[in-house]
């Protein structure tokens, strides 16, 4: 494999991973925008989605239905999580809420160990084991699925938030919760919906990546953390910027892995996070905005 084809290969694997991070990051941005909570359990929704889907497929349920079922199931888990852990503590300090989501992540992980054990599972690719040859690089069709599905999700969400009534209501809550309440929209209810939708996005991400890198109880940790980096790089409340951030992280990691060493992958992503936090705390795409004292 020559230099050029290696480059393309890495680029595609970066785009694939990036699109997974983007899905999770998007869920994260939605949760944060609506509830103001940094949900550190976000990545574990991906884990639950992947493992559930594998179980469904293995029990003979048709692929498409299995995917839908697991996304819906994880959305229900997300809703339950919001009711049981987030809602009762909604008036606590931000640090408390962060720690609660960490606790929830532990619970999800523990439940996964209980059901599936600690061994990794595989999911068959969506459309067989085909691959394309692009300038000498071998691109699995599953990579294309990942990229395509995330693009479809972004467009769907864009339409949802900008064209539908509920979507606009959510947006209104984010922009001005007080005015939204005057209009008869209940921001509290939005919190439930936001966490559920985020959970669904996470589940989809997990299902999409499972054929590429397998699934296990602890896969959510790093996916979640990387998605946060992406979201923070994008400025936490800016969905397109978070998506861009996710692809930056994905590609950066792929190239670090390919040209340097996989051991430094995480350190490089988090190094980037620290750089952004320390020098551009509003995200790399944000204009400075004043905070009132």
């Amino acid at each position: 494999m020559d230099g050029w084809s290696q480059f393309v290969q890495l680029l595609f694997s970066g785009l694939t991973v990036g699109s997974i991070y983007a899905l999770v990051a998007l869920g994260f941005v939605i949760t944060y925008s609506v509830t103001g909570i940094l949900n550190l359990a976000q990545g574990d929704f991906a884990m639950l989605g992947a493992l559930l889907c594998i179980t469904f497929v293995n029990s003979g349920i048709p692929f498409v239905i299995a995917i839908l079922l697991s996304v819906v199931a994880v959305m229900a888990v997300g809703g339950l999580f919001e009711r049981l852990a987030i809602h009762p503590a909604r008036n606590s300090s931000i640090a408390t809420l962060i720690i609660i989501t960490i606790g929830a992540a532990f619970v999800f992980r523990g439940i996964a160990i209980f059901i599936w054990g600690t061994q990794p599972y595989a999911l068959r690719p969506f459309t067989g084991n085909h691959s394309l040859n692009v300038v000498g690089a071998v691109i699995q069709t599953q990579n294309l699925w990942a990229i395509a599905l995330s693009l479809v999700s972004f467009i769907a969400l864009y339409i949802f938030f900008n064209k539908t009534y509920i979507g606009k209501a959510v947006t209104a809550c984010v922009v001005n919760p007080f005015a939204a309440r005057l209009m008869g929209i209940e921001p509290r209810k939005m919190s439930l919906g936001a966490v559920a939708v985020s959970a669904g996005l996470g589940a989809l991400a997990g299902i999409v990546i499972a054929p590429v890198s397998g699934a296990s109880y602890d896969m959510g940790v790093m996916i979640g953390l990387k998605a946060f980096i992406a979201a923070v790089i994008g400025g936490l409340t800016n969905a397109p910027a978070a998506i861009a951030g996710a692809f930056i992280i994905g590609i950066l990691e792929a190239f670090t892995e390919g040209y340097l060493s996989s051991g430094y992958k995480d350190a490089i992503s988090f190094g980037l996070l620290l750089l952004v936090l320390f020098f551009m705390p509003n995200g790399i795409f944000a204009k400075m905005s004043g905070k009132r004292v």
């Binding site: 049981l84 852990a85 009762p88 503590a89 606590s92 408390t96 720690i99 609660i100 960490i102 606790g103 929830a104 992540a105 532990f106 619970v107 999800f108 992980r109 523990g110 439940i111 160990i113 209980f114 054990g117 600690t118």
Partner: peptide, 26 residues
């Protein structure tokens, strides 16, 4: 009680403990 659960299963308890303490005994 749960013979086939690995040793790491205990994290579920710590997670629950964390959530419960923060909600009910901050």
């Amino acid at each position: 009680f749960i013979p086939n659960a690995g040793g790491e299963f205990e994290i579920v308890f710590f997670g629950l403990l964390l959530v419960i303490i923060l909600i009910y005994m901050p």
